[in-house]
Simulated scan of single mutants.
Amino acid sequence: MLKSNISIIIADDHPMMLKGLEQELEQAGYSILATAKNGASAIELITENPPSVAFLDIEMPFLNGFEVVKRLKELNLKTRYVIMSYHKEKGFVMQARKVGVHGYLLKEDSITEIEQCIEQVIQGNNYYSKSFKEDFELQTEKEMRKIALLTPSERTIIRLVSQEKTSQEICDVLSISKRTVDKHRTNIIAKLELEPVSNTLLDWIRSHKEIVLGL
């Protein structure tokens, strides 16, 4: 596909990053439809005129990049979604996978890699920055496989534990017995392959807060 036929919308609340990426892509020959400075504007622009590719920052006013993708995915647009961020922590990458983004680039990546990403996502493939080491990618996939084993009830328990509620408080909220709560905790710890020691689940939750927010 010709670059001029690939339309793009960019959303980023950092003016310099937004302008810099827009200029680089225009100079490379792509068609820039619009830019947005917050998540709400991004949804409006993409819905009104769906681009081939939407580049989204994670941390934006009103709605973050992940929330934008989740809402737009419900519309079944043909747009391919690429996150661009400074965050390379595994929690952010796993959250990106969970919401179904098609690409994840770091803001430090070169225009060459950005173009490689565009080419791949347009062809229907997923693309993650080469800055992510292979072992990191494997670890991310492993964590996502474990999370996929959790039942809806177990995910609810994790959300409540993330709010630092005690077992008794969880019992009261869900109207279940402490024995049932303890059983859920045991199953969750086993599925996540955690050590069965005190606070192990809460420690895991604190290390994967971005994932827990999406459960």
Rank of each mutant, 00 (worst) to 15 (best):
G91Y: 03
L45F: 03
S177I: 07
Q23N: 14
P196Q: 06
E59V: 08
C117I: 09
E44L: 12
E59A: 08
H87G: 09
K3H: 08
L215P: 02
L149G: 04
P51H: 07
I10H: 07
T47N: 07
E137I: 15
I157N: 01
V212E: 05
S85C: 07
C171V: 12
R206K: 15
I46P: 01
V68L: 07
I147T: 05
N125T: 12
I211S: 05
N38I: 03
E154D: 03
N199Q: 11
T140K: 04
E119S: 13
N126L: 10
G91F: 03
F62E: 08
Y86A: 15
S175D: 15
E195Q: 03
L33R: 04
P61I: 12
E108Y: 02
S129N: 09
K133P: 04
I6K: 05
V93I: 14
T180F: 02
K146I: 03
I189P: 01
Q168K: 10
N64M: 01
S198A: 13
L213T: 11
G29T: 05
K78F: 03
E134H: 15
N187Y: 13
K165S: 10
I157V: 12
A190L: 11
N64K: 00
L213Q: 15
L63P: 00
R206Y: 12
K3D: 10
T166N: 05
K19C: 13
K19G: 13
K146D: 04
S131I: 11
M1K: 07
Y81I: 05
P15G: 07
T35N: 10
G20H: 02
L45I: 14
D57G: 01
I58T: 04
L149R: 14
Q27P: 00
I118Y: 09
E164G: 06
I111C: 11
I83Q: 02
A36P: 06
E134W: 13
N126K: 11
L174P: 00
S7F: 06
K165H: 14
H102Q: 12
P61F: 08
S85D: 04
Y81F: 14
K209H: 15
T140W: 11
H208I: 08
E67A: 07
N38C: 06
I188Y: 00
K130W: 02
K165D: 12
I157Y: 09
F136L: 13
E22G: 09
I58Q: 01
I147P: 00
V181S: 02
E119I: 03
N126S: 15
K209Q: 15
M1P: 05
V121L: 03
I170F: 04
E67C: 01
K130M: 08
E24I: 11
Q23R: 14
E67N: 06
Q95M: 07
L21I: 11
I205S: 10
H102V: 06
M94N: 11
M144Q: 07
P196N: 07
E134D: 11
E137C: 15
M94T: 01
S153E: 08
V93D: 01
E119G: 02
L45E: 02
K130V: 10
R97T: 12
G124I: 13
Q139K: 14
C117W: 06
M1H: 11
I43H: 02
L149N: 10
D13H: 06
I205M: 04
K191E: 02
S162G: 12
V69I: 14
